[in-house]
Write a protein that binds this DNA or RNA. Sequence first.
DNA 1: ATATGCATCTCGCAG
DNA 2: CTGCGAGGTGCATAT
Lengths: 240, 240
Amino acid sequence: MRLLIARCQVDYAGRLTAHLPMATRLILVKADGSVSIHADDRAYKPLNWMSPPCTVTVRPADTVVAPTDPAAAGLAGEPLTEVWEVKGRDGDTLLISLAEVLHDTQHDLGIDPGLQKDGVEAHLQVLLAAHPETLGPGWTLVRREYPTAIGPVDLLCRDAEGAYVAVEIKRRGEIDGVEQLTRYLDLLNRDPLLGSVRGMFAAQQIKPQARVLAGDRGIACLTVDYDVLRGTDDPTARLF
Amino acid sequence: MRLLIARCQVDYAGRLTAHLPMATRLILVKADGSVSIHADDRAYKPLNWMSPPCTVTVRPADTVVAPTDPAAAGLAGEPLTEVWEVKGRDGDTLLISLAEVLHDTQHDLGIDPGLQKDGVEAHLQVLLAAHPETLGPGWTLVRREYPTAIGPVDLLCRDAEGAYVAVEIKRRGEIDGVEQLTRYLDLLNRDPLLGSVRGMFAAQQIKPQARVLAGDRGIACLTVDYDVLRGTDDPTARLF
DNA sequence: ATATGCATCTCGCAG
DNA sequence: CTGCGAGGTGCATAT
């Protein structure tokens, strides 16, 4: 990993065109060849970047600064040291015009062992599939990821009376999740083998608007307490 | 901006729990107080991060390594130098356990002048508004951002026969865009002044599923060639 | 390979 | 402040 602190101007041309005026920024060049440019704020998003795979071509500034060169616009005579041309797989380009390099170091990090996650939607689905009685007394699971023409329903269950219920699971229940479940229900209710299929929207938190929309469409809502569900968890059913 | 290269272990607890085993990584501490941890690959996404506003508390390692401390798990006796506790506004925490600092520099970058963009959906809308005949022969524009109770329709047009057409514009046409247009059409068709309003879904690319759903609802689809449209563009209509 | 959906999404805008 | 949509979304998974 190479760390540069430099005065630079950046021009991106690809799915959009974007321009960063000359200023001091951090430039990260990683071992996979990717490049990103960071300002001194925002933890997550770089100002500009090029995802791997990409290639970096470095040229002395005087060979590229020409009247038609986009990098020449707005420089107002500030001398450049180098111009980097970063090319992505889709032909998009990042032109980094370096005026002054204040810091330049290289570091060998090795491969990262990677992130271990817990608590995402997949895990919620596993837990609810293992404990369908959480959804309603006497409920049983038909199957997880029940297939339809427009994608799988998270859970298909039967209630105590044997009627089918399609369950959509989200970490955060919002309006688009209700829309999604509605589409599934439209399809499932055309299947004569299932008969009438009800819907249930299960999430750790459900936003008021989503709850109203669900109610308007006859879809039941259930807020799930992840920690409680986890407490009833069979250790052999764990994802990790 | 502070740049650290360090052997570290990271534990996040918030909207999910996540764990990074001990390894050498880049730690970025920015002027706004935000913290991010990068591996030597991926241009865009950090392994872990804490968005501002957040606070960093640094403590000597021996004051925090206890049997119940999550940072103590898996360390197998590797000596720590410091433990950083980063707390976010929602009570989420990032625990960074530093074992060895290989590089530590500080840099003053100043505020960034910021990014200038061009070519997004707004521009497509401007271009189509200037050339409604692209949508259909003899079509005219009623107005951009035609207001409804649930938000503005991108374009309201009249076709050659004078009938109203609501146009939803996306860069990439997907299923939720069709849902959005459907909601607008439901409302517009209740307005007796407009009479029957048809729908058109215009995008640079339209996904098969979105096309099928649109067809099922009697909504026309149009794929727009941005470059061709741009070629016919009146320069005075440019956004920038 | 493409397509579909999730994300600690982030970010900006409007009500 | 919340909701909603856009993003050069990135990213993993299933097809």
